[in-house]
Nucleic acid binder design. Structure first.
Length: 426
RNA sequence: GCGAUCGUGGCGAAGUGGUUAACGCACCGGAUUGUGGUUCCGGCACGCGUGGGUUCAAGUCCCACCGGUCGCCCCA
């Protein structure tokens, strides 16, 4: 029997989960400040949602989905990304009808893609993402980008690179697409196999190809920026002006292409330039997707969002040597000697816990000295010593592990005493 | 899906065909009876990813599978 976690999945254990909680709390706080509310959607959806939403020609849909048939003969798929589900929920629950628009949502949760695992790429991974639905104001594009950047920066990341581009509206994209096809068509035989396919399916992606990046035709390829119509051009300019005013640095990369079909206008990626980060440098990506809500059966509604990988975020923190300010101390540890004292310690431990104090005790019948060792290992701030003498006098010997000083405290005073010292000291 | 590389106790790591699988960390116990983080002593793999095969003999050689890592593709 194979008792290992499936390929591309991992257990997050104590010592690590604290970091996840910290990061999650940071982004939840950030969303609160930016006024984004949490949405929780199912982890699986009808397969069709992703085929329509993400796009039939994308790699994600073509070869990376965890699709299965349930007992009711429905084709379901473990979500490979978050936007399609959020938009579906937006439409289904008619959130467009709520008085406060745009609808600003965030989510946190596992995504699933069948890929060859490697550092920073798991088959199950966790994304944090936000979506703003119902506004076509360039300021909200800047807001989304600023939220992403703030999150990373507040966690301490410095080696960040924000890359932006505009994919234009559908008119601009069609014109650009035609231009690309006629540009690369004469060179078709010189391109790699993948690119020959891309020429028909999605010529935009040729610009992304690493194999053909040195081909002379790449240099002269028509840029989407040249094909933006006036409206798209103005929109992109407005986004950049907002970013400038906010003091958010960026570089424009005309070859930045996103892998999902629904994007248009603003597209962006945030990358880490930290040393030793490996081949995968993208921390997060996002963009505008006007038209997606309609595609999924809703009213005409513009939208923009982004998603980041928590795994990659933690990798970036590690690469930059950033320690999160985690609290790894235990308030109190009970050390009891003898049967009577052990029994009394059980009772007192419960009393303290009910009073809101963090306490633990030995459950392995360890020797006195070993109990102290446990307390030390758990970083206990105070050790509560209970033996025959103390039982006799109804007191507890409270030892401050930092200073080494001890104080005798009566049973009835214990709660208030500990509350006092824990509030005062660290 | 393709290429490369690796897989020994809780962790790190020796072992390069042949007696009881080094060593370090961690852990457990002890160094005269109730006070931790130091030191000293002792204990701790019936097993070398899994399954086959070669051999008198395999952790050590061969094959398959599983898994990790790195790169490609793609992406978060």
């Amino acid at each position: 029997m194979n008792m290992k976690a499936p390929r591309g999945t991992q257990d997050l254990l104590p010592g690590t989960t604290e970091k996840w909680q910290y990061v999650e709390a940071k982004f939840k706080d950030l969303c609160n400040r930016f006024n984004y509310s949490e949405i929780r959607t199912p982890i699986f959806e009808h397969t069709e949602l992703f085929q329509r939403g993400v796009g039939d020609t994308t790699d994600i849909v073509q070869k990376e989905m965890y699709t299965f048939t349930d007992r009711g003969d429905r084709s379901l798929t473990l979500r490979p990304e978050g936007t399609a589900s959020v938009v579906r929920a937006f439409v289904e629950n008619k959130l467009f009808g709520l008085p406060s628009q745009p609808t600003k949502l965030f989510y946190f949760g596992p995504m699933f893609r069948y890929e060859r695992p490697q550092q920073g790429r798991m088959r199950q991974f966790v994304q944090f993402g936000i979506e703003a639905l119902g506004s076509a104001d360039p300021a909200i594009d800047a807001e989304v980008i600023s939220l992403a950047m703030s999150g990373y920066q507040e966690l301490g990341l410095r080696s960040l690179k924000l890359v932006i581009n505009s994919l234009g509206d559908s008119e601009s994209r069609t014109n650009h697409r035609n231009a690309l096809i006629s540009h690369f068509e004469p060179h078709k035989e010189e391109l790699c196999g993948d690119c020959q396919l891309r020429l028909e399916k999605n010529p935009l992606r040729i610009l992304d190809c690493k194999k053909d990046s040195n081909h002379p035709a790449m240099e002269t390829a028509p840029s989407i920026l040249e094909y933006l119509n006036d409206e798209s051009k103005l929109y992109f300019e407005a986004v950049k002006i907002h970013l400038d005013q906010m003091g958010i640095a960026y570089v424009v990369d005309k070859n930045l292409v996103r892998g999902l079909d629904y994007y248009n206008h603003t597209a962006f990626e945030i990358m880490s330039e930290a040393e030793g980060f490996g081949a995968i440098t993208t921390l997060s990506g996002g963009g505008r997707y006007n038209g997606l809500v309609e595609d999924l059966g809703g009213p005409e509604t513009p939208g923009i969002g982004f998603a980041l990988s928590v795994e990659r975020l933690l990798m970036a923190l590690e690469a930059e040597g950033i320690e999160l300010p985690l609290n790894n101390k235990l308030d109190c540890y009970f050390v009891a000697l003898g049967e009577k004292a052990s029994s009394e310690a059980v009772r007192l431990t419960y009393e303290l816990r009910k009073a809101g104090i963090q306490v633990d005790k030995d459950y392995q019948d360890k020797k006195f000295k070993a109990q102290f060792k446990s307390a030390d290992r758990l970083n206990a701030k105070y050790v509560l010593v209970l033996g025959d003498d103390e039982i006799e006098n109804k007191i507890v010997n409270v030892k401050d592990m930092n200073s080494g000083e001890q104080e005798e405290v009566a049973f009835e005073q214990l709660v208030s005493y500990l509350q006092e010292v824990l509030r005062g000291g660290k």
